[in-house]
């Protein structure tokens, strides 16, 4: 396992952003971590990068426990993990040229002097599809898609074992998004890195993830192989999420059964007792309000779900029992 997260908890003051989350990512695997705003999905990414210190739990990167490493002790391990950010505008230092930005990791890990770095930077830029003359440009001279390519080049230049990508394409227009998504899949195949792909967009996850984990209020409610999750979602929340995302086909879209969830996502300051989803779940019954379902795999198919209604011989359907 390249990444193992065990019962991770991260509280910001009163806010229980991540509240007991476990997941793992194997060699060369792409895990899509899906959730809506406030689900805590970005916090998971920050903990893995150790941009923040987890409150409790454990994070192992390629077998090494990094949960509470100091900044200094963490530094050499940063060769193995990097990040691609959502905002192509704020994630590049406006005062650096593209060559400087992409060459920074080489410099900090003593891999190359500024002069030697040039060759590797040029090769990396070519790999992400940027023309050589981009090297001397500044971020503000690039389009959003080009900037995101620079972010990818920076994240990949040390050939890390794990890349955390936090909504890397959600700020981009569809046509630009398509080319960046293609690029990510190509690079992933060529370089073989593992990837924690954080997003709210199910169609993106379906496109590139091997496995999917769905988060709700700081916890994983369901995870499994991508095809299985999309074909047979078991948790009522996953079902609602899938049914709510409109498909770009008016005939199909208008005939779909949709599960419209009532109410809003509760505050992570004071999450509901019992199952955290019970306040919005169309199927909730008494047990859901009092006891919290564990993430278990009653059907033993590598597809665990945290729902009282999922048993070895029953899968709930949120669209029917209303």
């Amino acid at each position: 396992m390249i990444l193992e997260i065990d019962n991770l908890v991260k509280h910001y003051g009163q806010v229980r952003a991540v509240d007991g989350l476990s997941l793992s990512i194997g060699q060369g695997e792409v895990l899509g971590l899906v959730g809506e705003s406030g689900s805590g999905k970005s916090t998971v990414g920050k903990c893995v990068l150790r941009l923040t210190e987890p409150t409790s739990g454990g994070i192992r990167l390629d077998g090494r426990d990094i949960t509470h490493l100091s900044r200094r002790a963490m530094r050499p391990l940063r060769r193995d993990v990097h990040m691609v950010f959502q905002d192509p505008y704020s994630s590049l230092n406006p005062r650096f040229t593209i060559e400087q930005i992409v060459g920074e990791p080489l410099l900090h890990h003593g891999i190359a002097s500024r002069r030697e770095a040039g060759g590797r930077v040029a090769a990396m830029l070519e790999q992400v599809g940027l023309r050589p003359e981009m090297r001397s440009r500044f971020p503000h001279e690039l389009s959003g898609g080009q900037r995101q390519r620079v972010g990818l080049a920076r994240a990949l230049i040390l050939e890390p074992k794990l890349v955390v990508a936090d909504e890397p394409v959600s700020a981009l227009d569809v046509s630009v998004q398509a080319s960046v998504l293609n690029l990510i899949t190509d690079l992933q195949r060529e370089m073989g890195f593992s990837c924690l792909f954080i997003t709210h967009d199910l169609s993106v996850v379906e496109f590139l993830a091997d496995r999917v984990a769905v988060m709700y209020l700081g916890k994983i409610v369901e995870s499994g192989p991508t095809a299985q999750i999309f074909a047979e979602p078991r948790h009522p929340y996953t079902q609602a999420l899938l049914s709510a995302a409109p498909v770009a086909d008016p005939v199909r879209q208008r005939e779909r059964r949709r599960i419209v969830l009532g109410g809003d996502v509760p505050s992570p300051v004071d999450p509901p007792a019992g199952c955290r989803f019970h306040t919005r779940c169309p199927l909730a019954y008494d047990a859901c309000r009092t006891s919290e379902p564990a993430l278990t795999d009653p059907r033993t198919s590598g597809h665990p779900v945290a729902c009282h209604l999922v048993t070895a011989d029953h899968v709930p359907d949120a669209a029917v029992n209303r």
């Binding site: 569809v174 046509s175 998004q177 398509a178 899949t185 169609s203 993106v204 379906e206 496109f207």
Partner: peptide
């Protein structure tokens, strides 16, 4: 065709 849901053989059509 650029939509992720329109992928053909694991690739998206780019513009």
């Amino acid at each position: 065709n650029a939509l992720p849901s329109a992928a053909v053989n694991g690739r998206l059509a780019e513009i």
